[in-house]
């Protein structure tokens, strides 16, 4: 081949560097953060009790269970999956913990581990069905939602478990921070978000998880064991739901078979409001934290301003549809 042909079709000029403004707008967590700050701003004018250390701590405490669920949910959704069973799985895990500790004669720490392991096992089953049987995540986890819910009712016999050992409610305890007191559980949630952010952003496994939701064929052809990776994601998400179960127990002080019934949808709401694409591969876990806090702030703020709780649900619903709409429009633009 002659070099003249090579020069004829010379490489086109380098891409113009994207402008600062454009780069800033491309930060996916900017929208959720803006919405969160706007909501805070509004409620701090609407109620003088909103912007107090005590109330902020309360919001964190109200958010910690759904927030922790949202960490696992984010991982699953980033792979282009969805987990409808996480609330029910958490409820079952909390029943396993409390039952074993109270009437099973099992040491509290072992009961906690058993509860977390139960949730991890449920996650592993979900992941295996999705990966090996190639069933849609929506259907698998919908089925698992019912199974976990039924197991909860069977094991609890509709009885709330009370008289828990201290260790199970330890995460509900508080420590002083300036003028206010903060629960250990809300700190744990923030730590989990930080760890998840690190893993997703800065490890090979995290990069693969993003790529998996983006183009699974590319990941497979790059020599990554896609099956193991995907089952791993659902299992780790299960561990997180198990930790959420412990937080739930710590917050309520009992093992409640009725708990967590809408938490699956709340966790999806948080993830979607946080700007993580339901189609996988795009978004930041930090956004999911903003999303969870946004839901928490709206509920708390409307409560403080005396709005009926029905409207809290209404507004959350509208926000979710808006968030998905924005994601969908962004997707079409890229095409």
């Amino acid at each position: 081949m002659s070099t003249t042909t090579a020069e004829r079709a010379a490489t086109p000029p380098a891409e113009a560097a994207p402008s600062r403004v454009k780069a800033l707008l491309a930060v996916p967590t900017l929208g959720p953060l803006g919405a969160l700050l706007l909501a805070c701003l509004y409620f701090s004018f609407a109620s003088d009790r909103f912007l107090t250390g005590g109330n902020m701590s309360l919001i964190l405490q109200q958010v910690m269970v759904v927030g922790t669920l949202a960490v696992g949910q984010s991982a699953v959704i980033l792979t282009a999956g969805i987990d409808l069973s996480n609330g029910a799985s958490m409820a079952f895990g909390s029943l396993v913990m409390t039952k074993l500790a109270v009437s099973g004669g099992v040491p509290a720490w072992l009961a906690i581990l058993a509860g977390i392991a139960t949730c991890a096992a449920i996650g592993a089953v979900n992941g295996s069905l999705v990966t090996l049987m190639k069933l849609p995540p929506f259907i698998v986890t919908l089925g698992m939602l019912n199974i976990a819910m039924a197991l909860t009712h069977i094991t609890s016999k509709e009885q709330t478990v009370t008289g828990l050992p201290d260790l199970l409610t330890k995460l509900g305890d508080t420590f002083p921070l300036g003028q206010t007191r903060v629960t250990y559980g809300s700190v744990l949630m923030l730590v989990l978000f930080a760890v998840a952010w690190y893993v997703l952003r800065h490890t090979a496994a995290g990069r693969h998880l993003y790529a998996l939701g983006d183009n699974p064929d590319a990941v497979r052809l790059a020599g990554v064991n896609v099956r193991r990776q995907l089952i791993g994601v659902y299992t780790v998400a299960g561990v997180l739901y198990g930790i959420a179960a412990l937080l739930l127990v710590a917050r309520t002080g009992v093992g409640d078979p009725q708990a967590g019934q809408t938490d699956n949808l709340d966790s999806i709401t948080a993830v979607v409001l946080g700007g993580i694409s339901l189609f996988g591969g795009r978004g930041s876990i930090v956004g999911a934290l903003y999303g969870a806090l946004l839901v928490g702030v709206i509920r708390n703020g409307l409560q403080l301003t005396g709005v009926d709780s029905v409207y809290q649900i209404l507004i959350t619903g509208i926000l979710v549809i808006l968030a998905v709409g924005v994601d969908q429009i962004a997707r079409r633009r890229r095409k």
Binding site: R207, D217, G281
Partner: peptide, 26 residues
């Protein structure tokens, strides 16, 4: 090494991540 038609890259990831996909340097 094989370059597969249309299947080779993860569009949302950056160029470096794509180049080292599955062979990340720690």
């Amino acid at each position: 090494e094989t370059v597969y038609q249309d299947l080779a890259v993860a569009p949302a990831l950056d160029i470096a991540s794509n180049l080292f996909l599955g062979r990340e340097i720690r």
